[in-house]
Design a binder for these strands. Structure first.
Lengths: 143, 143
DNA sequence: GTGTTTGCAAAGTGTTTGCAATTTA
DNA sequence: TAAATTGCAAACACTTTGCAAACAC
C-alpha cells in the first residue's frame, strides 16, 4: 500500500489520458508516467526524450514534442517561456510563479501564495487577461 | 528649435554611443536613431532590420543582432523573453512590466508603479535576484 | 477495417559564428 | 596601420511538418 502511493498505479495514468480524450498509446503512457509520477517537474522536450531513451522507452523526439503539446492543450501541463529557443513544460498546473536560474537555466516553483500582486492594471481595451507570469531571475552570488 | 526636439540631434546619438564605449559606426548610428528617436519601443532583430532596409540603411541582419546585443550589454536596451524563439528588445530600461498580446505577439509596457509586488520570497540559497519580470498575457475577448 | 498515432527525415525559424574585407581612430 | 567592425554564408539549436507505416478501438 505504501508502495502504491509512491509509484502511481498504471490505471491512474491510463485514466488521466482517457479523461482528456487521448488514446493511451504506449508512448503516451510511458511519457505520462515519467512526467506525473513523483514530484512536480520542469522538463524540455529534449530532457524528456533522453530520459525516455534512458529508461528504455522507444519514442521519437517528434512524438515527445507532439505529446507535450497535446498534454498542454489538455490542461495536464503548462508551458513556461523564460529562455529564448527553449520551451519548458511544468507538471504543476496550479497558479504559481517561478525562479529562473540564469546560469544553470533551471526553473524552480514559487508557491503562488508567496507572491502578492496587488492592483494589476486593467488590460488593454478589447482584451482579457489569460495568465500572469512572474519570473524572478536569479544568479549565483559572490559569497 | 521645435524641430530639434522632435528629431534627436545627431550629436546626441553619437554621444550616447561614445559614452558606452562603442565606436559610432554608420550602422550603429543608424540603428540607434531608429531605436531611440521618438517613443519607447519593442523590437525584434528582424523588425529592426527590415525597418533599416526600408529607410535605405545598408546593414546586415547579423550586424543588427550584434548591435542589439552590444546595446543590451551596454545598458541601452533590455531584452525581454515572452515568446519562444523570438527575442524582444525594449528601449525602455526603467523598471517596468509588460502586457503580452498572445495573438498579435505585441508587447506593451506597464508602468512599474502600476504593479505592486509585495513579499517577494527569498531567492534560493547562494543566489541573488537579478530581475523580476511580470508578464500579463492577454488575449482578444469576445465582446 | 477505419481513423488515430507514430517515426523518420526534411524543412522551418530565429540566432550565432568564422573569417576575409572594410572601416574607424 | 592597428584594432574594431561588418557582411556573408555556413552552422546551429530547437521545433514543426508531411507522409507512409504501425497501432488502437
Amino acid at each position: 500500500m505504501v508502495f502504491m502511493e509512491r509509484v502511481r498505479p498504471f490505471s491512474q495514468v491510463l485514466e488521466r489520458l482517457r479523461s482528456v480524450g487521448l488514446r493511451p498509446t504506449r508512448q503516451r503512457m510511458a511519457l505520462a508516467k515519467l512526467l506525473f509520477d513523483g514530484d512536480d517537474r520542469h522538463v524540455t522536450a529534449e530532457m524528456l526524450h533522453s530520459e525516455a531513451v534512458k529508461s528504455r522507452v522507444r519514442v521519437s523526439l517528434a512524438t515527445v514534442y507532439n505529446t507535450l503539446h497535446q498534454f498542454t492543450d489538455a490542461g495536464l501541463l503548462r508551458e513556461v517561456v523564460v529562455d529564448i529557443g527553449r520551451s519548458y513544460f511544468d507538471t504543476n498546473i496550479k497558479d504559481h510563479h517561478h525562479f529562473f536560474h540564469e546560469q544553470t537555466k533551471q526553473l524552480e516553483d514559487i508557491a503562488d501564495d508567496r507572491i502578492e500582486i496587488g492592483a494589476l492594471p486593467p488590460p488593454p481595451a478589447g482584451t482579457e487577461v489569460s495568465r500572469v507570469d512572474v519570473i524572478v531571475r536569479v544568479r549565483e552570488n559572490n559569497n
